[in-house]
């Protein structure tokens, strides 16, 4: 360990326009969690996280971390960069001897922020999901395809989306987003 950070996987000039913001939010802590939601560890882990493990598919809960539903026995805990050890330890302590898998997967995905009044329209160019706020409003998340890349899409307050994507796809996805955004961003050829 040299203590140096690697470069952000996507590496691009962020877009900041009245209607649209696109930026990379790299290096966020991500811990994958697998356990039986009906088992004894589920409650302890929910208390340790400060938010119960969401049971409804396609939703997430928030405390000082976001806890995203990935599957009926699988969640992704997402926090600020640099919290890998602390979160992993907190979860392992809460799990005790229970049948729980805790895996640091922070390097598995980088995060793209897509925000603003045009964010939904932009994402809809390459996503088959219904992104209307009535269906996919704040508190919802989905693993799906965006422009044929596998992503984890997270809807937050204020027309803000987090798009989690594998680093090897990030450059491609950013190129696609910037191209699709041309018609929404002023001062750029449409």
């Amino acid at each position: 360990m040299t203590g140096e950070r690697p470069s952000p996987p996507a590496r691009f000039e962020p877009v900041s326009d009245g209607d649209l913001r696109i930026a990379e939010v790299p290096f966020r802590t991500q811990v994958n969690l697998r356990l039986d939601p009906g088992g004894p560890a589920a409650g302890d882990i929910g208390r340790a996280l400060g938010v119960p493990l969401p049971a409804e598919p396609g939703t997430y809960g928030s405390a000082d971390v976001d806890v995203l539903w990935l599957g009926p026995d699988e969640w992704l805990v997402v926090g600020e960069p640099g919290r890998e050890r602390e979160l992993e330890t907190r979860l392992r302590d809460a799990a005790g001897t229970g049948h729980v898998a805790v895996t640091d997967v922070s390097a598995q995905r980088t995060t793209l922020l897509v925000a603003g009044p045009k964010a939904r329209d932009l994402l809809a160019h390459g996503c088959a999901l219904d992104l209307h706020p009535r269906v996919f409003g704040p508190g919802r998340c989905a693993q799906t395809m965006l422009a044929r890349a596998q992503v984890l899409l997270v809807a937050r307050d204020g027309d803000e989306f987090m798009v989690l994507v594998r680093p090897s796809f990030a450059g491609y996805l950013v190129a696609w987003l910037l191209d699709a955004a041309a018609e929404y961003v002023s001062g750029q050829p449409g």
Binding site: L70, G71, P72, E74, Q143, T144, M145
Partner: peptide
């Protein structure tokens, strides 16, 4: 299998 989604 929901390969690009919940993987179930």
């Amino acid at each position: 299998s929901h390969a690009a989604g919940c993987r179930r």
